[in-house]
Nucleic acid binder design. Structure first.
Lengths: 342, 342
DNA sequence: TTGAAAGCGGTACCAC
DNA sequence: GTGGTACCGCTTTCAA
């Protein structure tokens, strides 16, 4: 398969004019045939001659020329996230990417580290994408949205913990994660609940809403419930320091932001002689394998992406009929999984 | 900053002709000014008028038009990897991405899931990238390399465990990881060494070379050393099954592919009453935080990317003076970190 | 059923 | 110093 079309040793790729010449037809005909243009009838022999010529020369159309002429692209731009991607985001990416390709879009991740929001929007607009999906870490200003829209983006969509004014939103509402965790702990009869707040800068975007959801769940429960934020760096020293003053905090439960922080804190608490779950119940989030390997086995908040419509279908719909009011779709389903640690 | 340039409500982005009209100059002049073209002297007042007009209109150049005219792009294409990216690859990505931007390249990750190698190469070639860096998971055929080269790619580079004929290579030689692990275990006086082989399809690409390196290190040591591959799925059932027949294997050490598999297997062995490290020494790879949290603390092979020249500089050099013989650069430095498990 | 030709937005050569 | 203009590769009327 790889070698079938004998490529001439010519050093530069042929154009549609070369294909036309070899097939003995005009460039127009080449375009009609290769794009299966339905509005024009081309005879079967001609089609074959064109196809053979294209294959023989190893013709590859020039995307820039095509989109320049067309006045639009089928590029969906996904600015690469700042923070290292978690497992959930990776699943989201592969999913939306293959779905969009099935719908005949070209998905492009474009790195924009170190650009300010307006510069970034202009850089994206240079590519004239038909849709832009910006992850939470990337700020999107009204100016940026304007530039993108006027550059031909039919859909500007934010993806993250909270919506942005003026753009459509795929909301992964992290508050529900905190809410689930705290409701679970409350249902276990715990009332003094610590909430781990990672100090890594990129995580604040997720940690803050999780805390807000935790606080909200506690308020809904009543005055007995108390939420205490617990700053923690992802290193043993920080965990040991927290564990050392654990008993002074008067907590009987902790939501650790995620399973990895759970492992860190569980180890530190156990080393400090604090029993889990007897003295302190613990729940993480992400439902990773590692949680099941801890002793006690870690309770966790499991998350999945779910919506009536796949994100790719939403994008396709917005592209085909743009101009509606900003839409919000809540993608995150969270549920507590009880194991031995709570 | 975001609101300063009052954008007219016009619904489509202005072209350089619009800028020229507003500034009262020609399109040529606009191009000269905005690109700081040094070969032509434009008076300062004119420059200002052009710049003001461009800013006022919110002008954003059209990348496709530019590259069509130029006959080449400054796009470096990074086909997105198939397998979920590990921490090492993520570090590599952010690094190369910001380095390349500094050198004024546009870095684009292009998803190609589910395309066959030659289709994928054609899809990439449509974008006329100046360089392509394909991760190990993506096959690159001689035909594909030919198409890309003729489409204007000055550098076609593979990135992964082993080089590919006809392309430059950034080699992350996984054999050294297995070699390090085994040499470490041998130095501890262990001779019957199991090597975990993850059964997840995407990991074979890494696991096989690690095993090969392990075998090689054992051979170098002498006849006393024995290597035994141990297929393992990433689930507790598979680990328990392996642990149950552990003593029949006659091994006194195991290299677990990475730290996560180490955690899985360590738990299973401990549950089966096999003492680590007394009965079986264990070493993982990646040197994750979680290894330090295990009891016994996990020995691990730590990896980092190092080379005389940054990958971005290599790409830039190849782009500027293409046509040399395929280069190979070995990026991976591996070293065993001894902790309590070995 | 096919071909000639205009034009998408920028760049760069050549005149003035 | 600045403007006119040809052209990059492709699509799409319009005419034949």
């Amino acid at each position: 398969m790889s070698q079938l079309p004998e490529q001439p040793a010519g050093m530069s790729l042929p154009t549609s004019a070369d294909v036309a010449r070899l097939a003995g037809v005009s460039r127009a005909t080449v375009s009609y045939v290769l794009n299966n243009n339905a509005t024009v009838r081309i005879s079967e022999p001609t089609r074959r001659r064109v196809r053979d010529a294209a294959a023989g020369l190893g013709y590859v159309p020039h995307a820039a020329a095509r989109s320049l002429r067309a006045g639009h692209t089928r590029t969906v731009l996904l600015p690469a996230a700042q923070a290292p991607a978690g497992p959930l985001y990776q699943r989201f990416l592969t999913r939306i990417e293959s779905d969009l390709r099935r719908l005949d879009y070209t998905v492009v991740q474009y790195g924009s580290l170190g650009l300010d929001p307006d510069e970034a929007a202009r850089a994206w607009a240079e590519l004239r994408p038909v849709a832009v999906v910006t992850p939470g870490g990337m700020a999107l200003t009204p100016y940026g949205i304007g530039v993108l829209t006027r550059s031909g983006a039919k859909a500007v969509i934010t993806l993250g913990p909270q919506p942005v004014a003026g753009a459509h939103a795929l909301v992964m509402d992290q508050r529900e994660v905190g809410g689930c965790a705290v409701r679970h702990l409350l249902s276990r009869g715990r009332h003094g609940i610590g909430v781990v707040m990672p100090q890594e800068p990129g995580l604040a975007l997720f940690a803050e809403p999780r805390l807000a959801g935790a606080v909200r769940a506690a308020e809904d429960f009543g005055v007995k419930a108390r939420i205490q934020p617990l700053p923690l760096r992802y290193d043993e020293e920080s965990a040991a320091e927290l564990a050392a003053r654990w008993r002074t905090l008067g907590l009987d439960a902790v939501f650790t932001y995620d399973d990895e922080y759970a492992m860190l804190l569980m180890r530190a608490l156990q080393d400090a002689g604090v029993d889990v779950p007897a003295e302190t119940a613990m729940i993480g989030a992400d439902d990773l394998m590692l949680g099941r390997l801890l002793r006690p086995r870690l309770s966790s908040v499991t998350m999945e992406l779910a919506s009536a419509q796949s994100p790719a279908e939403m994008i396709d719909r917005l592209v085909q009929s743009p101009g509606g009011a900003p839409e919000r779709h809540y993608l995150l389903r969270a549920a507590a999984v009880a194991r031995e640690s709570s």
